[in-house]
């Protein structure tokens, strides 16, 4: 699943986000590969209440290094990202979620 890399322009990352061989790119401009539109999980599943006690729900949003997963990757909408952040911070205070992983 490397299809999500290099969303839009942004320059940089030369060569990394290039479409697969065979697709001709016009003068260095990358043609974005087909990418499924990202949807806010909480809007889609109609989760109104982002609760700090529900660790199972929060865990996908604190990957590996235990940082909060940015919106540009998860696709969460602004309102839900804000609520998610408070929930994660509360869960961290109670040692339900780590602040960092070593």
């Amino acid at each position: 699943m490397n299809g999500r890399r290099g969303f839009g322009g942004g320059g940089g990352g030369s060569g990394r986000g290039k479409p697969a061989a065979g697709q001709q790119a016009k003068d260095g401009q990358r043609r974005p590969m087909f990418r499924r539109r990202k949807v806010c999980k909480f809007c889609a599943d109609k989760i109104d209440d982002i609760n700090y006690k529900d660790v199972r729900m929060l865990m996908p949003f604190v990957p590996e290094r235990a940082k909060v997963l940015p919106r540009r990757i998860s696709g969460t909408c602004a309102m839900h990202q804000r609520k998610l952040r408070t929930a994660i911070m509360r869960a961290r205070a109670l040692a339900l979620i780590p602040y960092t992983s070593e």
Partner: peptide, 17 residues
């Protein structure tokens, strides 16, 4: 679409793994 078991909309790309 929501009933799709193979729903991978929220799968994360390699960049965060």
């Amino acid at each position: 679409e929501l009933d799709d078991d193979r729903d991978d909309r929220f799968d994360l790309g390699e960049e965060v793994r």
